[in-house]
Design a protein around this nucleic acid. Sequence first.
DNA 1: CATATTATACCAACCAGTCGGTATAATAAT
DNA 2: ATTATTATACCGACTGGTTGGTATAATATG
Lengths: 200, 200
Amino acid sequence: MKTKTQKTQSGKVQLLEVAQRLMLAKGYTATSVDEICQQADLSKGSFFHYFESKEELGKAALDGFYFRQKEGMLQAEFRKEADPLKRVESLIDFLIQAFKNPDIPKSCLIGNFSQELSETHPEIRKLCADHFADWAESVKSDLDEAKTKYKPHTPLDTQSIADYLIAVIEGTLILYKAKKDIKIFEKNLGHLKLYVQSIF
Amino acid sequence: MKTKTQKTQSGKVQLLEVAQRLMLAKGYTATSVDEICQQADLSKGSFFHYFESKEELGKAALDGFYFRQKEGMLQAEFRKEADPLKRVESLIDFLIQAFKNPDIPKSCLIGNFSQELSETHPEIRKLCADHFADWAESVKSDLDEAKTKYKPHTPLDTQSIADYLIAVIEGTLILYKAKKDIKIFEKNLGHLKLYVQSIF
DNA sequence: CATATTATACCAACCAGTCGGTATAATAAT
DNA sequence: ATTATTATACCGACTGGTTGGTATAATATG
């Protein structure tokens, strides 16, 4: 019956989870392979059995992070909302609520890696750009639907509005890390929501 | 007459400039004291003559960065604009123009340090929070003036609008580092400007 | 048996920081 | 004015520890 992983997760998954947690908090460079192994209760030999380098682990952690975020979004309740504009507004409300949850890390691996590694790790920079683009695309498709439905008088560049939404989130995370005041999420995302409403 | 430092800058200034440049590009952790010394053409002995630790250098570089940015803002032409609302709009235009200049680094030491060090270096985190607060205060005072002058119908939380402006800038920098497309500044700051106009 | 997983031992390079010392110049004492 | 004292700027070797990474072997697992 208990054929696979009954006591604990596989070594690879464990390493990825620890790496993600540490890198969300301290970034890529300040997170050492040794510390990851320690906290994953595995040896360095195991680490380099699963990942051929720290950078490969970084890429895997980044992909895993984005995949989980995307899954969480797609399966969230607000996605069932029929009206596309309300769906965008609900996305913002969903984020406001999510950031109120103390168990949700106030950090984004894509933003962290983009800031820290864009000049030194070109492949990771590219991955960040791709994930940002994919994220923006999913927002853009709702905005396009809303545009078709509500035909606003002013011309709308939905792509750049989606990018803007991401920038507000990433910037708010940075501000939060300095101030450590959770209210910044509600306030900033509130402004963003008002803006989206104002242009439709 | 020429009593002091006519040929080259003092060692301390040189170290600070190199540190700022490297940390703007690669962050704090990935920038080693050795590399700073190499590029500043000074020995490690000299480094620790001027700074008692790497963290103290980080603080000094952070303060210096903010001071320069603030000076640049205060002396900019748009500050002479009499109308407070136009002054805020001109600030945004000023930033759009500034980011078009290839010589201006597309990076903010306050944002970088906040993201990278907030969990590990509490004193630096505090410094970031203070600088963000000071920056926001300068924006808020213009917004307050505009509020008094134009008496908008909707109630305005000028403090949170100022924070929002900073978040948009910081988030846009992160997006830029991934995408490396300079147009993101004009687009995102354009949305911000529209929002500010819409609420007055 | 063979393959996947884990551990141990090790490495060279690099890390922040220390140390003892020198060269120079400003200041004080004679 | 000359000498003694002190402070500043700087150097480069060195330390203990950490870094990412490797080589090899033990242990599971199928």
